[in-house]
Design a protein around this nucleic acid. Structure first.
Lengths: 233, 233
DNA sequence: TGTACATCAGTGAACGCGCGTTCACTGATGTAC
DNA sequence: TGTACATCAGTGAACGCGCGTTCACTGATGTAC
């Protein structure tokens, strides 16, 4: 068995070269396998092929590693949302819908990041750089809401963008963490989380006075095969 | 130190009498202190004042204990929601609002239950009785949505109750788990989670065609002191 | 270009600790007669 | 009413294990001259 380790070492030499990165990747792997609770410092070291003392050169303790992951998660999240938003092209509404889908996509494809960011118990506001990363991600949603609010038809009271952003965020997070997660705790749903969220946001926007076509969202409900979804008789 | 333990034993005799209950309480305590990850079987035994082998008479392992807590959580959740709903008295809309507040109240006052139910990684659908308890709780929201849907004014297409229920649930869970939690991971908000959720639901219902007074929800936004909330200029 | 030296990343052995789990046991309780 | 016995809940000692953390160390890298 031990030749494996030796071989690894032979390949890479005494110095790893990129251990910090490797530890983050290893931890991510472990989190996505066993949840944020089920990874240990020693585990990560083992997976990266170094001795259990090596990680201490890069992280003070397990919590610091976890916080680093959450931070990187927020950065990647921001980048995904930014790309989806694409500064509101080609039009605000469809870009907005793309952001919603990107949100769910991230939660499903990166459950390890998502749970480190939102469910690991890392208190975001205790770490300034983590806090800043989190706020940069939220800022995308907020900017999109701002643009949407500016689109308010004449005669309609312009909704506060911050409120809209918080509403949209809570809808997205709610759907993602109940029905759209990438792990075993995902709850079954008689439709795709994407459709559920899209209908939810459209109805909400109509409630704010936006002229949303009623058929678009009705279609989302009707197209599905019958089931607990409860097609109206 | 050991007299403490002896004294405890002297008080209660050789048999504990209600150990299963005591273990559940102990675990709840530990979870609310350190999160669902931070409690151990041995810890719970110690807190209940019994030997580390004693819990095995009542639970196969840690996971079974955790599942029991989640189950009890859903039962209590159901009871809280049922009481708040009060079969739609005095009128459907205000009872519905009460349910929303009760949802947030439960999440804040029972963070240990809430996280065992929704964030502990216990897969709900792997355990039939847990699944059933979860469904009974959701059924209250669904029943309320049903009554609300039946209230649709003439000429308005009646919204599918299941969809409404899922939308409301995701909003409530989103607000609760981002802003309304009872532990350190709670995010700061320029208003109360209750007001945020209430406005969100009202706007949503208006989007479905319900005649919701616009002032009610505007008030929620305006009454607050200025801040990041972004009072319109 | 070569050499000496400082710096740094990773080693591996060691430690104390608490956990999960098992075991034969013992004390208490309930019940049959 | 009393006694014998079965059942059951909790004991406490023991185990192997893996974790977090420390330590003096060593091998590699970079740099000053």
């Amino acid at each position: 068995m031990s030749w494996r380790k030796d071989e690894r070492r032979a390949e890479r030499g005494y110095h790893h070269g990129n251990l910090k990165e490797a530890l983050l990747q290893a931890a991510l792997n472990l989190i996505s396998q066993k949840g944020p609770a089920g990874f240990t410092f020693a585990d990560a070291a083992r997976m990266a092929g170094v001795s259990p003392a090596a990680p201490y050169r890069h992280f003070r303790d397990r919590d610091e590693l976890l916080a680093s992951i959450a931070q990187r998660g927020f950065e990647q999240f921001e980048s995904v949302l930014t790309q989806a938003w694409d500064d509101g092209r080609p039009d605000t509404i469809s870009a907005f819908e793309r952001v919603g889908k990107a949100y769910l996509g991230f939660a499903r494809e990166e459950p390890a990041f998502y749970s480190a960011m939102f469910e690991s118990g890392v208190p975001v506001d205790s770490n300034p750089t983590l806090m800043a990363a989190s706020e940069r991600a939220f800022a995308i949603i907020r900017a999109a809401a701002e643009r949407l609010a500016a689109l308010a038809p004449p005669g309609m009271p312009r909704p506060p963008a911050m409120m809209m952003a918080l509403h949209i965020w809570s809808m997205s997070h709610g759907v993602a963490s109940l029905f759209g997660r990438g792990d075993a705790a995902r709850r079954k749903l008689p439709m795709s989380p994407e459709d559920l969220l899209e209908a939810e946001v459209l109805i909400y926007l109509r409630g704010l006075g936006f002229p949303i076509d009623r058929r678009a969202e009705a279609a989302a409900a009707e197209e599905k095969p019958a089931g607990p979804w409860g097609r109206p008789k």
